[in-house]
Design a protein around this nucleic acid. Sequence first.
DNA 1: AGTTAGTGTGTTATGTTATAACATGTAATG
DNA 2: CATTACATGTTATAACATAACACACTAACT
Lengths: 167, 167
Amino acid sequence: MKKKKKNENSSKIFLGHDHGVCFGDAITQIEDYFIKKKLQLTPLRRKVFEILIEDHKPLGAYEILEKLGKTGFSSSPPIAYRVLDFLIEHGFVHKVQGLNGFIACSNPNHSHFPTFVICRKCEKVAEVSEEKSGLNLPSPEISNFKIEKTTIELTGICSTCENAEIR
Amino acid sequence: MKKKKKNENSSKIFLGHDHGVCFGDAITQIEDYFIKKKLQLTPLRRKVFEILIEDHKPLGAYEILEKLGKTGFSSSPPIAYRVLDFLIEHGFVHKVQGLNGFIACSNPNHSHFPTFVICRKCEKVAEVSEEKSGLNLPSPEISNFKIEKTTIELTGICSTCENAEIR
DNA sequence: AGTTAGTGTGTTATGTTATAACATGTAATG
DNA sequence: CATTACATGTTATAACATAACACACTAACT
Ligand SMILES: [Zn+2]
Ligand SMILES: [Zn+2]
Ligand SMILES: [Zn+2]
Ligand SMILES: [Zn+2]
């Protein structure tokens, strides 16, 4: 039972998971949050969030629009951008700047300066929480600056792709 | 001599400087680098770099193009983007993702995972070096991931603007 | 000299991402 | 039932970025 250890603990952050559970949990979380905050989880908002959580990889606004169109919603750009802004504001979606994409948060109910780790080869994207990223904000040097929002994205190559590369 | 201490050491990163020196140094640095690497610091490349270092705040590609046009260069988009890509590749320019802007590096000849600190009110942007940012990459959690490029941008409000706000 | 390859710039056209401005519908408030 | 707030819809356009091709210049070989 101790075989094949070598690659098992590399890049845990990119590991798979039970997506049925993941999806269900996420829906429950957003429902609870919206009730608590007396916000409307409308069919459109729910649908956008579902689209994102289904894939849970970054999607472009126009990809989302296309999927919306296929389910009977309007697919003009402001529809997507407005809902996305709203979901971002409430911490259920993040924008991945480097990809002009939007992704469902992998852990809402959380103080939130997330790091995104992006493999440029397999294009997997992992959200790493503040505590685990090793990024300690803020430093003394910038301590007088009041951080409201962070964009932290690490692009490179994951261990799976690295190992697969012919050298 | 101990008066007015309170605000003096806030947000040093946004402090002013002797821009004549700054500009001259930057030009010298890029000249030296290009010679050493046997690259061509053509009039166009030099001009783009000068435009950026003159303001040393982020400019959009189309703003740069406008300035290029006024000095006799072509001002069609690929001109700017190509030169910017080249200067970025060699570490003399950075892209500020959150602003779709480009800014001259404040310290080339440097291992380079810079942090940008952006005041959303006065729109000042400061580049903080790796060592000073307090961001220690990578963490154990992501140590199997080979980081090639980082985007680290902290948006918020600087102490000057903070103090100016009526509460 | 003539050919070839590499590099830098120019041009046209088009693709992609995002927002402005205005219109409509619906529900809660007074 | 007017007023307000909010959610969605629509049209048009702005802002950002790249593809594809053309041409000039230099260096290096044949
Ligand atoms: Zn998150
Ligand atoms: Zn990968
Ligand atoms: Zn820099
Ligand atoms: Zn400020």
